[in-house]
Structure formats: C-alpha cells, structure tokens
Amino acid sequence: MTHLFAMPLNIRTYHELTEADRSGLADQIATQRRRVADRLAGVRRVVAVLSGKGGVGKSFVTAGLARELARSGRATGVLDADFNGPTIPALLSLPVARCTLHEDGIEPAVSVEGVRCFSMALLLEEGRPLAFRGPETEGHVWRETLEAATLREFLADVAWGALDELLVDLPPGVQRFQELVELLPAPPTVLAVTIPTPESRDAVRRALRAAAERKATLLGVVENMVGGPFAGSAADEIAAEFAIPVLARVPFHPGDGAWDHIISKLGSSL
C-alpha cells in the first residue's frame, strides 16, 4: 500500500517541452503542407465537386464540365480523389500510359481538350482494387491515413502548372472533403451535384452543411439525371436552403450540346 503515499511525479506536459528535436515531426508535417501550397500557387481556384451521395454522377459532371471549360480556353485540371473507384480518365477518354516522373514532380495526363488529369486509375493494374502494404490486422487504423497521404501527394507532387480551375472529384461522403480542407492553404470552392430525389437532397444537404462549417464558398448545385426515372425537386430545395444558385440541370440523356449550355450558365460563377 506504499503507493498511496508516494509523491506524484512532476512531469512536464508535451507543449512545455520546447527543445529542438531531430525528429521534428511537426516540422515534417509543416513541410508537407508547404509543398501543397507551393504546388498550388499557380492554381486560381480549387473546386471540390461533392454530393455526399454515391451514384449521382459527380464524376460524369466533373468530366463534362472540365472538358467544356478547357474547350472554352480555360486552363483546367481534374484531380480524381476517388481512389477506390476512379473513373475520370475513362470519362476524359485518356489512354492508360506511363506517367513521366521528374525530380520535382510527375506529369499529369492530358486529354484531347487539354484537361490535365491525375487519377489512381492511371497507376493501378487493370481490374485490381487499390491495396496497400501493411499489417493485415487493424487496417482501419491506418488505411484512411494512407488515403489522406495519397490525396496530399496528388496535390503536391503532380506538376499541375498554372490553372484557372482544379476540379477535385470527391468520393461519396464528406471524409475526403475534410481531408482536402485540412491540406489546402484556404478552403476550396464547392460545387454540389445531386439527382432530383429527396434521398439525394438529404445527403447533399448534410455534405453542404459540412462544407459551410469548414468555411468553404458554396458555388452552387448541379442537378443531374433530370427528366429520367428520378422524381423530386432536390436542386431547388437545396438552393433555397443554402441561398445558392442552381447552376445547371443536366438531362438524363444529355446529348452532345448539353455542356455548351451549362458552361454558359456557369461562366459567371467560375
């Protein structure tokens, strides 16, 4: 029972220890953030394309928008942040080819229209899932951290160059968006994509609320798959709730001319 009478140890806390340390973990993290900021110094605007809901056509809208922006003369890039289901290269009709490495970075793939793109789809073996080296147990502890590191490297290590817009195609949910916000020097602009249904409305509403809480500028909402089997008025309701414009309504069968029309509506917002 002697421990009951032992004097408590006088232990200084983490923040009270200020001596230089060779590990410098905080400095290493700061250096990572600086690399992102330096790489994106030539990017006028980062636009996060999100919905919070899967299957609403975020990637389809992102690719269509990127192609049309490039055709209209704007320097446009797309970062495919859906590492487990990357589709942007296929939607931009990019062939699978070797990525060229330089000491300072990696060249993005470039579409016929001039869209600069980087995606996990450019790196993975055909038909194989994204898998990481690591211990088989407790994978949930480190896998999300590795995906956040992947996002950081796609931002910092791809030679994006000077861009008017870098569109970031996010996977469903808001986690990747949160990671993006933490990595960028300033919160991104957010473009929401929904389909007309109430279910999609609810998911997009949650995602936009998360974006607003992180001080992101809400650009507007695009309603996809309009005139098809999905009924509802999600875009109008979201627009009213967040005081943002409905930027476009993409028909269920868009046709070749659909993006011209959308770009003219988006022109003043972007």
């Binding site: 060229t100 490495l101 590191a149």
Partner: peptide, 24 residues
C-alpha cells in the same frame, strides 16, 4: 520523392506505371 508514399505503399500498382523523364 514524387508520390513517395503512394509508390512505397500501393501493392496493386502497374509495373509500368512510371517512366523517368529525359536525363533523370
């Protein structure tokens, strides 16, 4: 190194995913 974590950790990457630029 560019994409250091991705290249070091991904196990399902294509063998021919990368090529060095000229003079690298």
């Amino acid at each position: 190194q560019p994409l250091e974590t991705v290249r070091g950790m991904v196990t399902t990457g294509r063998d021919d995913a990368f090529e060095d630029g000229k003079g690298e």
